[in-house]
Design a protein around this nucleic acid. Structure first.
Lengths: 260, 260
DNA sequence: CGGGAATGGTTCATTCAGTGAACCGACGGT
DNA sequence: ACCGTCGGTTCACTGAATGAACCATTCCCG
């Protein structure tokens, strides 16, 4: 059904997004589409200023800042992002570690905001990065705040081994989730990336369902077991603050004023 | 020519982006297109998970996080963003004010990164915000680093009055640009928003052309004239650091390691 | 060297996907 | 009860989207 030329156009965009500077033939190959079709899409998108090709000999294509700006200024995440930035800042000052804000996109989380640590040795994820639910502090916190039905749906799927220490056994992950529920915050020791430990907590909407997560991340040499409780309570408090703010409509107006 | 169904699809996306939650008829009206066509686009984009409609009675449409994630993880800005984050952090620590990173999109700048101040009273722009060249510290810095030909092209266009204090006379703006060139940094006193003063400097690429800008912003009560020079030299130094880093290819690899 | 297999890009006949006017049912205000 | 609006649907027409076959380059490897 429905407008397959638009479908291929969007798929072209998503393919470029995943493979950064990429050539015409490669895109056509990935989409199982003819080069002619793909090229017409690219030219149209170029006219619209959504893609550009490098002027070097390979003529590879990439997305433009314009495409980013269009999607960045809208999107549901904008609201939670603006509301969350205050409490996140406090958390960053308290812990001096990198703070991440993630929101769900399909069966994964996406990083939509980040505050950095002043430390030279640091951990951070680029904005827009996809984070798996089973292999991150934010993901575990999100699952801990989700229904058992959803958790088991995720655990029943394929649990990708992201780092050496990623737990890929449903039982092991389930154990981490149970612990997170008891504690009120989640801990992920090097499951997303070797050498990085994170502590996270879920932000819940008015309906009680999780709408996002915050976490702090740093090298395992600094985020040691002795600090888990301090960091965990701080993260959980921050998540609760954001949750509370989301429930109060007037916040939107105040933030709007400050950001003008 | 070229694939006008894709053109309308993208225009639908851009229209939604500008008007946040918006109804079917409004979109059709803005695009001078039939509701049937627009609705088919919306349904296609919905299947692709780029737009969603509120489940409330008005059934308004908005962009999804997925759309944001797709464009955020790619885009030219990603490189400069990752490179800039280090020096920006230093600047934030030194000045304790909000730090913005902007890159050009057409004849405007777009905010692609921000580091917040710990102060309660603060100034910030949402990521993805369009910033006019003539009415912002970043824009003035960008123009100061641009060719006279380009500056006059911009000054010859319409200079929108963004705030009460926005300078809309080409001569006045030209004066600000000249001062910025002499100083090495730009100052914008409440031209973008009443009560907010910013200091900015341009990041230049290997070809010597400006590729972006950094700035610090805060309430005019804190960013006072006596501090302009200190802040200005700090901002200029940061911009130079980023410029230098951009010239050194190896940095890319280091950042990639840290961000994993 | 020199051929072969990539690459980016073009052409063109076939056909099917995209188009908008007219339409429907449901709200919401007067 | 009316009118105007909303979101969404129907349908006949047609021109826009498609991919196989086609260049012109470049680059690699024997």
């Amino acid at each position: 059904m429905s407008t397959q030329s638009v479908v291929t156009a969007i798929k072209v965009i998503e393919t470029i997004s995943l493979h950064q500077p990429i050539g015409l033939s490669d895109i056509a190959k990935q989409l199982d589409s003819s080069k002619a079709t793909v090229l017409r899409m690219l030219n149209t998108l170029k006219e619209l200023n959504w893609v550009a090709q490098s002027e070097s000999r390979d003529a590879a294509w990439s997305l433009t800042i314009h495409a980013y700006a269009v999607t960045a200024r809208a999107s549901i995440g904008a609201n939670i992002r603006d509301v969350a930035i205050g409490p996140m800042n406090g958390l960053q000052l308290d812990t001096q570690e990198t703070v991440h804000l993630c929101v769900p996109d399909g069966d994964a989380l996406v990083v939509v905001e980040r505050l950095d640590t002043p430390h030279v040795l640091r951990a951070f994820l680029a904005l827009g990065t996809q984070v798996p639910l089973h292999a991150s502090a934010t993901g575990l916190a999100f699952l801990a705040a989700s229904t058992d039905a959803y958790v088991h749906e995720i655990l029943g799927g394929s649990l990708e081994k992201v780092s050496d220490q990623t737990k890929t056994q449903p039982n092991s992950v389930w154990q981490l989730i149970k612990e997170s529920r008891e504690r009120g915050y989640s801990i992920n020791e090097e499951g997303l990336s070797s050498g990085i430990t994170s502590v996270g907590a879920a932000i819940v909407g008015s309906a009680g369902t999780p709408v996002g997560c915050v976490s702090i991340s740093g090298p395992s040499s600094r985020i040691v077991a002795a600090k888990f409780e301090d960091y965990g309570t701080a993260v959980a408090r921050t998540a609760r603050e954001i949750s509370d703010l989301l429930g109060q409509p007037w916040v939107r107006a105040v933030i709007a004023t400050l950001s003008e």
